[in-house]
Amino acid sequence: MTDETRTEISLLVNGETSVLIVDNRRTLLDALREQLGLTGTKKGCDQGQCGACTILVDGRRVVSCLTLAVTADGVGVTTVEGLAEDGELSPLQEAFVRLDGLQCGFCTPGQLCSAAGMLAEHAAGWPSAVTRGGTPDLDEAEIRERMSGNLCRCSAYPSIVRAIQETAVSR
C-alpha cells in the first residue's frame, strides 16, 4: 500500500529484481537491511562519515546511508553479498581473507565494495587528490587516498591496501 508516506520502488539487487514499499524516510541502507534481509551492508554511522555502508549503484560507489530508498527506484545495486560469483570469492575477497585485510570485519563489506568501485574508477582514468599528472599508477599512496572514505578502527589498513594492490596488479 502506498500513500503520501510510502512509495513503491523496484530495485535490481545483485541481479535480482525486488519490488518493495518503502517508508519515504527510509534510507537505501535500511531498505536493504530491514526489507531485503541483506544485512551484509553495515551501518557504522548513518551519516556518511565511515563508509561501512558503501555499495555499488550502477557500478559507482555510494554510501547507502545517505541515499533515500525512494531515490533509488529502478537502479542496479551490488552489495557485498553480490561480489562472489556462484559461490566463488572474487579476487578482491580472496585477497582480503588471505592477507588478513580485516579483523572484526564490520568495515569489510564497505571496504570491499569501495575497493571494487575504486578499481573501476582508476581503470577509467580518474585522478585522485594525490595524482600528479598523467594516468596514475595504483601505488600505495593512490590507494590510501582513494580509500580514505572507509574507516577501519581495527586499523587493518596496511593489509587492506596490500590486498587491493595485489588485486589491481593481477588484473
Binding site: L38, T39, T79, V80, L83, L102, G105
Partner: peptide, 16 residues
C-alpha cells in the same frame, strides 16, 4: 593462517 570466519566476513554472511 587466515582467520576461520574470513569467508563469512567478506561475503557479508557473518551475523552481528
Amino acid at each position: 593462517r587466515p582467520r576461520l570466519e574470513g569467508r563469512l566476513k567478506v561475503t557479508g554472511a557473518a551475523p552481528y
